[in-house]
Design a protein around this nucleic acid. Structure first.
Length: 377
DNA sequence: TAGGCCATCTGGTCCT
DNA sequence: AGGACCAGATGGCCTA
């Protein structure tokens, strides 16, 4: 038996063909190491282990037909999922042979080997084979549906993380990473009680993301990704002069909101608006007109929840039913009057009753009202 | 063409 | 026994 053979490969092919698994094991002996090949014949209820380097046994078990050379030709075609079972059916014993087997009472199998103890391996009769086949098909269908459900949930997640694009979908893993970062970033904002600068925010969003996704996120937020990445590589994020966030920040204030630095809207109004793609929807929802800069060749629909720099994020304009049905947003925030500023809601927060406080990494913050307000803004 | 991503099949494990 | 969930294997598709 050649040592360099991939036991896994052969085992898998065998396994797929005849529920036979080929394992390579090392059997240490006093004289040194001896490579021991084991052929494990398995069923749901029994496991029979045979030495694979015994040609007599191999020939008797498989009639010498399972040479390694022929296994390569038995590759399973995924589009014909039960071809291998047809192959298996050739090995299947009919009802007569089953009777014959049962009548043997000499304690030895057909090869003269001692019969193994334990539950008997059920014979693969035609009816049993059909049942197994049917169950397999049903299980495949269920598994397919399960995965479709999982993918639908992932699609829903894609729509609520920043940078949603129908044409340039985030991969599954990147969607999950971005969602995690997004939650973390929002938690940070809530726990700190103030907005981070855009760079920090984007850096939090992009932590652990691949470079293409990082570029995507940075592009979504209209941040110079090259600056961002180089800053990230250098460790410390820094922007000289006015950050793009500042201009965005000043542009998207809702009426009456006072910035942490104490600037009023009137002081900010003079700043030329910087309208990053992802904020267009919030911009439009505020000012009820279309922002001319909203068109982007990269993204066909700005459907991710627009990040509202007044607070955390604003209500996404798409799929409101989804929020009500499957998202806690709807139930949590439905009782709050819309267009309430943070300061207003802070004043009236005692009048608002929420079922619970948001728990943020070990601290409880009665921030529902603020969230409510900013969400609706 | 290599590598990434994805859908599907499949057998194992756990639970009801 | 059967369903849910999981992970490995595989092949197809796409892109750099």
């Amino acid at each position: 038996m050649p040592r360099d053979v991939s036991g896994r490969w052969h085992g898998y092919q065998l396994w797929q063909l005849a529920s036979v698994s080929f394992l390579l094991a090392r059997d240490k002996e006093s004289s040194g190491e001896k490579i021991c090949y084991l052929l494990i014949i398995r069923s749901k209820s029994t496991m029979l282990t045979l030495p694979f380097d015994d040609p007599a046994i191999m020939n008797s078990q498989f009639g010498g037909n399972f040479s390694r050379d022929c296994m390569g030709e038995m590759k399973v075609n995924k589009h014909e999922p039960f071809k291998k079972e047809e192959a298996l059916s050739h090995m299947m014993e009919d009802d007569d042979s089953e009777k014959e087997e049962d009548e043997r009472e000499d304690g030895q199998d057909e090869n003269g080997l001692p019969r193994r103890r334990g539950p008997r391996k059920k014979k693969m009769t035609k009816a049993r084979f059909d049942r197994v086949k049917l169950r397999r098909m049903e299980a495949n269908t269920r598994e397919r549906n399960r995965m479709h459900g999982l993918n639908n949930a992932l699609d829903s997640l894609r729509k609520v993380v920043p940078c949603y694009s129908k044409t340039q979908k985030l991969s599954k893993i990147e969607t999950l990473r971005l969602a995690k970062n997004y939650i973390w970033a929002l938690s940070e904002i809530l726990s700190m009680g103030k907005r981070p600068d855009l760079l920090t925010f984007v850096q939090t969003l992009c932590k652990g993301l691949s470079q293409p996704t990082t570029n995507l996120v940075a592009g979504c937020l209209q941040l110079n990704s090259r600056n961002f990445i180089s800053d990230q590589i250098n460790g410390e994020a820094s922007f000289s002069g006015r950050s793009p966030y500042d201009s965005m920040y000043t542009t998207y204030h809702s009426p009456g909101v006072v910035t942490p630095s104490g600037h009023s809207n009137s002081a900010i109004d003079a700043v030329k608006p910087f309208r990053p793609f992802n904020y267009c929807s919030s911009y439009e929802s505020f000012y009820e007109r279309v922002s001319p800069e909203c068109a982007s060749p990269q993204f066909d629909a700005p459907l991710s929840p627009p990040i509202n720099f007044n607070g955390i994020f604003s209500l996404k304009h798409e799929d409101p039913i989804d929020y009500g049905k499957s998202c806690h947003y709807g139930t949590r925030y439905c009782a709050v009057p819309p267009r309430t500023s943070i300061s207003q809601s802070a004043r009236g927060s005692s009048d608002l009753h929420f079922p619970y406080d948001v728990h943020l990494r070990g601290q409880f913050y009665p921030v529902q009202d603020e969230l409510n307000t900013t969400f609706h803004n």
